[in-house]
Nucleic acid binder design. Sequence first.
DNA 1: AATCAATACTTGAAGAAGTTAAATATTCGC
DNA 2: GCGAATATTTAACTTCTTCAAGTATTGATT
Lengths: 388, 388
Amino acid sequence: MFPGIDTGTFAGPPAATAVFTTVLTEGPVSRVALARRLGLSSAAVTKAARPLIDLGYLHELAATERSGPGAGRPASPLAVRAEREFFLGVKITADEVIGVVCDLRAQVHASARRPLDDPDVDAVLTEVGRLADDLFGTFPGDRTRVRRLGLTLSGDIDRGIGLVRYSPFLHWRDVPLGRLAAQRTGLTVTVENDVKALTAAEHWFGEGVGAESFALVTVGTGIGCGLVVNGRLVSGSYGVAGEIGHLTVDATGPDCHCGGRGCVESIAGTDAIVAQARDRTGRPDLTFDEAVALARAGQEQVRAVFARAGGAIGCGIAAVANLVGPTRIVVSGEGLAAYDLFDSHIRASFERQAFGAAARCPLSIRPLPFEEWARAAAAVSIQSLVVP
Amino acid sequence: MFPGIDTGTFAGPPAATAVFTTVLTEGPVSRVALARRLGLSSAAVTKAARPLIDLGYLHELAATERSGPGAGRPASPLAVRAEREFFLGVKITADEVIGVVCDLRAQVHASARRPLDDPDVDAVLTEVGRLADDLFGTFPGDRTRVRRLGLTLSGDIDRGIGLVRYSPFLHWRDVPLGRLAAQRTGLTVTVENDVKALTAAEHWFGEGVGAESFALVTVGTGIGCGLVVNGRLVSGSYGVAGEIGHLTVDATGPDCHCGGRGCVESIAGTDAIVAQARDRTGRPDLTFDEAVALARAGQEQVRAVFARAGGAIGCGIAAVANLVGPTRIVVSGEGLAAYDLFDSHIRASFERQAFGAAARCPLSIRPLPFEEWARAAAAVSIQSLVVP
DNA sequence: AATCAATACTTGAAGAAGTTAAATATTCGC
DNA sequence: GCGAATATTTAACTTCTTCAAGTATTGATT
């Protein structure tokens, strides 16, 4: 059972995978509850759990206080032994690499970042290696328990073979990043698109837990979206999916760099907001932060820019709700540092444009801690251990 | 094996279901090809196929001419015996019921329609019963081989329990149509939303065959969309999915009856087109057909109305491509009687607004034969036999 | 024509994964 | 301490699939 667990794979019977992922994502659960949840017999759960316990991935919690009617043997819930294994997660951006060490439950145990001034593949790999060293330096746990690394970056990625098909900001094409990073670090590497990783992380370890379908929207320079439908991440047949930033919301709106017109991003992207704020205030050197400050100070024209942006984002989110009907939607991203200026406009626009019962979809709007992106990379690495 | 095949269920081992659906949707295939396609051993395919052949659902085709390199035993491909079983499909609209009899491969063998002048549940059931009698009257095959009925109508449907939660045009709420129709007809009944049914039908028996993800857009009074993602029909957590008609495409556009603004439907729905055409021509009694005639005759103002409508539909379709990235998209529906007026505008708008590689998604734009909706109902019934 | 290599399919034994039913464990309320 | 209730384990059995070996059928080669 789980023959190759120490050589890097974790392929067991389907029931074992199901049991492990359920315990991992839905906290301590008793065997009977698992059996009901997964449609298995409790005997099957007992059998599936045994090797996982023996290998140290799961353990039994002390019997909990009664919750039911009264009588009966108390349950001994199964829980994940989070320190059984640790994972490196690294997000690569245009100007820095950000890394964390997480345990099996995606809790962060160490974090670090390094600047990046050369987009060359080799230079990036070197910095990733140094970042890993930095992380090992501050990581208080047993470093022999780190065997996996998750890498994320924006662009067109083939997760299956660890290939970066195209990265616009690093100017990479067809870089076999997974293989290269594995050679450098000696770790088992998973590569994934950053937004998809964040979506997967939120689906397994965040607000998306238990949702059959789920969407995560990131607001920033670009406006992106990751989708989980019927429990699976949506990838898009041509590599494009969740491109909420280029939905048309205003046929008479500004031209977009994508060639379209009135795209969400051309109204609500960071650059678009700055451009509009400069235009309205007549200050051609205004920065985004200054625009935020002006809006917070009550400058009506700049506030209107943010209101329009929030409205466009709301329309985009409503489009997601109308088309795929997710159980819940999380809105996040660096751009949401200006959270307070967006929130109400996003909600108002969403509620107006969501069709019928789709408006019942709960919206969480919250800024994102900086290391969350790296944590998502680690989360993808955790997934790759559990569901290869 | 397949113990209840004659009592209405068709639940066999997973491999058998997989083999049958693959042969059904992807035409005659040899056992080896099936094994490769499904990730099974050829032994498993042989064993799974035996009872299906014995029951008369599959048969072996004569060995085909060589296609490969040369040597080797020729394949005896498996094919579906289409006349093994027949299916009734009925679409219920506001003013008529349309029905067909299909074989296992969803080929139409008889078709009929009856007017409907009373939206009362009982009256509709009576007409469905009479329609079934009409169909049996003209059906040339063995009517004891008809055991299933598929019913479709627009609205909010729970396929699992055959419940019509809400039908706007019949003013039904929570009608257990599946149970009622089963009592009347003595058949095993499946109920499904009409657009979802059409999507499923196209996915199994039409242009969507083999596509991992697929979208079907219907243009008419309403503008709807059915989605298949990762091989499964998208249902929407709150019962809403594929609501392409209420995506915002023009923030400064007309108010929509849904409460939103600039929705696709408020620009490209049949009613919206008529209203705009009346407005532009100053003829308050203009009908849709007259508007089509004027446009075809070259009346520029009316042509512009159709152009704008096509543009809005193209934006909606681009939104689908950008968000879920289907392998292909079929555009169809009654409204496409005016196909020639829409086509180029839909394509142009789609190509402009589809992001990057999403524009590679092939678009089929074609009008829909009237009985296609009823055939889709039969197709859903076929599915319910194969995958209960 | 006989043989060989290639490919398709079948068979039977062995194994994996799950189920049912019965046994065991642990608690509460009396 | 006893019985009812609930959780977990165990063992026997069923079902499904694969593996390995064998059969079938063809084209190419001798």
